[in-house]
């Protein structure tokens, strides 16, 4: 059984400690919802698992199917079966979606995929995600709307067939109909391939469509509580305040805002 195991993970960026000891295990056929207030380390966790060079792992382990992920390059992690659907997918001019995806698929194979079967699968996937048929010939994410970019991430996930996929706010920028299309595509893939999922989202609506088997809340670089779908529902109705109280977490104090003026310059004086 495929599994991604994270043990006591500490991660920093530019000297600032973001993750302060995360423990988590995602097995195939499981859907994990990862929630938490903004700026507490959810995206950092996903980026660190994928190997984003901006982030430094200072302590802990990431084990994927018995392999030490921290010793692998980004592309090796992807070829091993990890996938990260990004919050802000990059635009790459000059590189078409089809050339990019063919190169990505071929990087996993000893013998290149035949053009016929590639085109057939790509056309089907594009249709499943209800995207425009010219997607294959357009440059990678260039000129795409926010929703198209997110749907294109799912097109890539379906084509690349990872074992464990991480989706970072893939629902942001999607309208109601697109949200259903994306959720259905993810659920369909999860059922047919036993995909393991780690999903970051702020919205219960998306989780209701995905029906996560596990839910976790990440605050101040640690997972403070875990549960099932009932945890998602509670956060949707009550927010995060109860967690701060229950686990005695100090909230970040608001910085005192000091307003700067231009002094007497441009200030009219009363005569």
């Amino acid at each position: 059984m495929s599994s991604l195991k994270i043990v006591d993970l500490h991660v920093q960026i530019q000297g600032k400690q973001i993750l302060k000891g995360v423990d988590l295990q995602v097995n195939e056929n499981e859907i994990h919802a990862l929630m938490g207030p903004n700026g507490n380390g959810k995206s950092t966790l996903l980026a660190a698992i994928m190997g984003n060079p901006k982030y430094t792992v200072t302590k802990g382990e990431i084990i994927f199917d018995g392999q030490n992920v921290l010793e692998m390059s980004v592309d090796q992690r992807a070829r091993a079966g990890l996938f990260l659907g990004m919050q802000y997918p990059q635009e790459i001019s000059g590189v078409t979606n089809s050339d990019f995806l063919r190169a990505a698929i071929n990087s996993r194979l000893e013998k290149p995929v035949s053009l016929f079967s590639f085109i057939k699968e790509m056309e089907k996937t594009i249709k499943d995600l209800e995207m425009k048929p010219d997607l294959a010939h357009r440059f990678l994410n260039e000129g795409f709307s926010g929703g198209e970019k997110k749907r294109n991430e799912i097109v890539q996930m379906k084509m690349l067939k990872p074992t464990i996929a991480m989706l970072d706010e893939i629902d942001s920028g999607l309208d109601v109909d697109a949200l259903k299309i994306v959720a259905n595509a993810v659920v369909d893939m999860q059922k047919t391939t036993n995909l393991g999922l780690l999903v970051v989202s702020h919205y219960e609506r998306f989780y209701q469509l995905l029906k996560p088997t596990h839910a976790h809340v990440l605050i101040d670089g640690k997972i403070v509580t875990s549960g099932g779908i009932e945890l998602v529902e509670k956060i949707d109705s009550d927010g995060y305040d109860w967690l701060y109280k229950q686990f005695n977490i100090e909230t970040i104090k608001k910085a005192v805002v000091v307003s700067n003026t231009l002094g007497s310059c441009a200030v009219s004086k009363k005569v």
């Binding site: 390059s73 980004v74 992807a78 790459i92 000059g94 590189v95 050339d99 990505a104 996993r108």
Partner: peptide
Amino acid sequence: DDEQMYYLQTRGISEKMATELITIGYLMP
């Protein structure tokens, strides 16, 4: 852009192959 290289690599494309893809995309027209 380092972010573009990272994005391509997250899909399993090696640095060499990413360089080739971008180069061909840039010059092939």
